[in-house]
């Protein structure tokens, strides 16, 4: 089958020997577009997964606006803003790494991917300090909430939402770090070039979505006061 040349519907249809082409696809373009559509559909599911938590946020904020305003003063805007900048920077670098591999510049691609992963690690470290501070203050979700200094009703629900949203987001950062590390190693092993870099681009798309979600989480949790 591999070497067969078939003529059908007036077009020449031959199979390349590109080792990255799966047997059931016709050509690299079809494979790349299929995988990209698949990743976009995956991102759609991610939007709706976080969507449940955004819905919670909206409902409880509408029920207790005064509590949200009082409680969000307890979050550290400086650390939140720092993390926002770190994530945006990592988003730029991951985009640049895709650009580098498109131009067959392997060294640069590896460098940009490494910066992205380091940024992700910085994000998680900052998050760790924020969390340990909250835990120390007794600002915990639900029945573990133990801070008697807040006057407004139901402050524990804000922290359920805060830990739920940022926790799920942090898990996604962790997953992204693992995937991007794998992509980095593969890039270093010269698995990708300008003719095949689908995993790099897919990792980038995912990373941008994680960034995009944080762009909404930051003002909703830290700034609205």
């Amino acid at each position: 089958m591999e070497n067969a040349t078939q003529i059908e519907l007036g077009r020449v249809n031959y199979h390349h020997h590109n080792p990255n082409l799966a047997h059931h696809f016709h050509d690299m373009e079809q494979q790349h577009e299929s995988i990209k559509l698949g990743v976009w559909l995956f991102l759609v599911t991610e939007v709706l997964l976080f969507g449940g938590l955004f819905c919670f946020y909206a409902i409880y904020r509408a029920w207790h606006p005064e509590m949200f305003i009082e409680v969000n003063q307890l979050l550290d805007v400086k650390l939140g803003a720092l993390n926002t900048l770190v994530l945006i920077f990592s988003s730029v670098t991951v985009a640049l790494s895709i650009r580098s591999i498109q131009m067959d510049n392997k060294k640069q691609a590896v460098m940009f991917l490494a910066i992205t992963i380091i940024c992700a690690a910085i994000f998680l470290v900052v998050k760790y300090f924020e969390y340990s501070h909250k835990i120390h203050e007794g600002l915990l979700p639900g029945k573990y909430f133990a801070n008697p200094d807040i006057a407004a009703v139901n402050p524990h629900i804000f922290f359920s939402i805060y830990f739920g949203m940022t926790g799920l987001h942090a898990l996604h950062i962790l997953g992204g770090m693992i995937f991007l590390t794998w992509v980095l190693i593969r890039t270093h092993m010269r698995a990708y070039s300008s003719s095949y870099y689908t995993p790099v681009e897919m990792g980038g798309l995912y990373w941008h979505l994680v960034d995009l979600i944080w762009i909404y989480l930051f003002p909703l949790l830290y700034l609205i006061g």
């Binding site: 007036g10 077009r11 020449v12 249809n13 031959y14 390349h16 050509d27 690299m28 373009e29 079809q30 790349h32 803003a81 926002t84 900048l85 945006i88 920077f89 988003s91 730029v92 985009a95 640049l96 650009r99 498109q102 131009m103 300008s194 003719s195 095949y196 870099y197 930051f218």
Partner: peptide, 28 residues
């Protein structure tokens, strides 16, 4: 399309990334 499709990456100029990145920093 009738012809076998080659794979052509669509490369954006560096200025786009830097411009968008700085806009994001400023908006933050």
């Amino acid at each position: 399309t009738p012809k076998h499709r080659e794979f052509h990456p669509h490369i954006l100029p560096l200025s786009v990334y830097i411009g968008v990145g700085s806009a994001l920093f400023i908006l933050t």
